[in-house]
């Protein structure tokens, strides 16, 4: 990490206004005849440039939290603010615009479009963004400069996830939301992917939120949010962010 970027990260953390502000967020699903309380009153602020890991067992509500942060879902109750935008109660068009302009997603199962090549999968997003990177540059950033014209079925799992990351960052989002990005990958590949995420957060200053049930990943975060049964159990700040290479599980 360059001293300069370290400086900005720290500076943003201290004192400045939060980029995301979530207050009292509740989410209730109906699954057939049962009501599922996925979130029960969550408060959370996210600051510019920080790397946040959300930890929790499956069913703890962490994916729901991520979906609400990314404007994929709306809370049943509570408030969600992004800078001065109120996301609570926003309509489909407003949420679509918000996702289009500000959010990059990375999913556990990559969710690439199988009929598109790596380059085209990235272009899919850059074509509708305002100030995107060149898709090829985004793929070079994740070390896939040689695999531009491969289809997802011709790429390994780690490569597919890197394409997904390139796709997420190519539009220069303000926030990168990653749902179990290493969940489907083996150990070395998973570390490679985390390294890419870490680099992007440091180099581009993009807020990164990674949700995982793998506690070892928490070491690379600025802050760690532990979730359980739809509530935030604890938020801790790491004294020192570990490099992905320093992690082990």
């Amino acid at each position: 990490m360059s001293p300069a970027s370290e400086l900005t990260t720290r500076a943003n953390l201290a004192g400045s206004e939060p980029v995301f502000h979530i207050h009292g967020v509740t989410k209730v699903y109906r699954m057939g005849d049962v009501e599922v309380h996925a979130l029960r009153g969550v408060d959370l602020d996210l600051y510019a440039g920080e790397f946040v890991v959300v930890l929790g067992p499956s069913g703890s509500g962490k994916s729901t939290l991520l979906n609400i942060l990314g404007g994929l879902d709306v809370p049943t109750a509570g408030e969600v603010h992004y800078l001065d935008h109120q996301l609570t109660g926003a309509g489909d068009a407003a949420l679509t615009r918000f996702r289009r302009e500000h959010v990059g997603f990375v999913f556990q199962f990559y969710n690439l479009i199988p009929s598109l090549t790596a380059l085209e999968n990235v272009a899919l997003v850059t074509e509708i963004a305002d100030h995107p990177m060149d898709p090829e540059k985004a793929l070079r950033m994740v070390d896939l400069g040689e695999r531009l014209n491969h289809f997802p079925s011709q790429l390994s799992g780690g490569e597919q996830q890197r394409v997904a990351i390139a796709r997420a960052v190519a539009k220069r989002p303000d926030i990168l939301l990653c749902d179990e990005p290493t969940g489907a990958l083996d150990y070395p590949t998973g570390k490679l992917v985390l390294d890419v995420l870490d680099r992007i957060n440091r180099d581009l200053g993009t807020i990164a939120v990674v949700i995982t049930h793998n506690a070892a990943i928490a070491g690379m975060a600025d802050r760690v949010v532990r979730v359980g049964s739809g509530r935030i159990v604890e938020i801790t700040r790491n004294e020192r962010r570990l490099l992905p290479s320093e992690l082990s599980w």
Partner: peptide
């Protein structure tokens, strides 16, 4: 995915 990335 298309929707997540802001396709309307």
């Amino acid at each position: 995915v298309l929707k997540a990335f802001g396709y309307g």
